[in-house]
């Protein structure tokens, strides 16, 4: 632990030496609002629904959740940025907005190239074997069939799902949640990215896999321009990021060197 902490200090030291600060992600006063249909139960069953339609009031069962409220920051090439904050503070939403998967309602997000989101939520087809899911996932990331064929064994090896026997040919619904998450991480990490967004991915799997995936993230970071990492594991933020952004209820609360921000955050969350 102490060793890793020191090595992350080295990274912080080397950063100012980067001569040209080229921005890769510019987030300019971004707002994201979810509109949620709560479905029935919003008020009085069918009769209530009919009344609302007749009186033309907007249904109370549509609620707006303002998940990100005017966040602005600029990320530069070569940075690894941690995103922290309590549950529901808008971290994952922020990542999705940067990835262009969830459009912002106000403000703007500018990016260099196509950022890729590497999340544990990537829903694949649970009825299919792990191997077929690898093929599908790679194709969905835009790889050519040749490349997919070449990479598939590597990906399965990396995920380590075959350690307990031939699981790659079994449907994914038979996997434990950890195995599924490992496979998804391995698929997404198989590609090189300009801007890489990682959502809690390191928190999955056992200790061995976590070490392996942290190493992989460092490799990806060397190839990628910028890495964002969302995690509740402050240790993995400390190990991989030199800059940290703290979001709290959709508002940017602090942005600066990891040490300072994490210290403040720990004080805030009462650790």
């Amino acid at each position: 632990m102490v060793e890793q902490f020191e090595s992350s200090n080295d990274v912080t030291v080397t950063l100012p030496r980067v001569q040209e600060r080229i921005p890769t992600v510019v987030v300019d006063d971004a707002h994201v609002i979810y509109r949620i249909h709560k479905g029935a139960g919003g008020g009085g069953g069918p009769v209530g629904a009919l009344k609302r339609i007749m009186s033309r009031t907007s249904a109370p069962n549509i609620r707006e959740v303002h998940a990100v409220k005017g966040v602005s920051f600029t990320a530069y090439r070569g940075e690894a940025i941690g995103l922290i904050g309590s549950n529901g503070s808008g971290k994952s939403t922020m990542l999705r907005a940067i990835a262009g998967l969830l459009p912002v309602n106000r403000g703007a997000v500018y990016t260099q190239g196509q950022p890729s989101l590497l999340g544990v939520n990537a829903a694949l087809l649970n009825d299919l074997s792990g191997e077929r899911n690898v093929v599908l996932g790679c194709l969905a990331m835009g790889m050519s069939p040749d490349e997919v064929q070449r990479r598939t064994p590597e990906i399965i090896d990396f995920s380590g799902i075959n350690q307990r026997g031939d699981f790659a040919s079994l449907p994914m619904r038979t996997y434990s949640s950890g195995m599924g998450a490992r496979l998804r991480f391995s698929i997404a990490a198989a590609k090189k990215h300009d801007v890489l967004l990682i959502d809690e991915a390191l928190a999955t799997g056992d200790k061995i896999f976590r070490k392996r995936s942290e190493r992989r993230v460092r490799e990806l970071r060397e190839g990628a321009g910028t890495v964002f990492l969302v995690s509740h594991q402050l240790s993995s933020i400390r190990d991989t990021c030199e800059r940290t952004i703290w979001l709290e209820s959709g508002v940017l609360r602090m942005d600066g060197p990891t040490d300072e921000v994490v210290r403040e955050y720990e004080a805030f969350s009462g650790k």
């Binding site: 600060r21 080229i22 921005p23 890769t24 992600v25 510019v26 987030v27 300019d28 006063d29 602005s72 600029t74 907005a97 940067i98 990835a99 262009g100 998967l101 459009p103 912002v104 703007a108 997000v109 500018y110 990016t111 260099q112 950022p115």
Partner: peptide
Amino acid sequence: DPDSGLTGAQLAQRYGLRFAG
């Protein structure tokens, strides 16, 4: 930004960034 006081949009334009999505 240490190197400029540009707005986000201007900064994005200078470095050829595009709207996400």
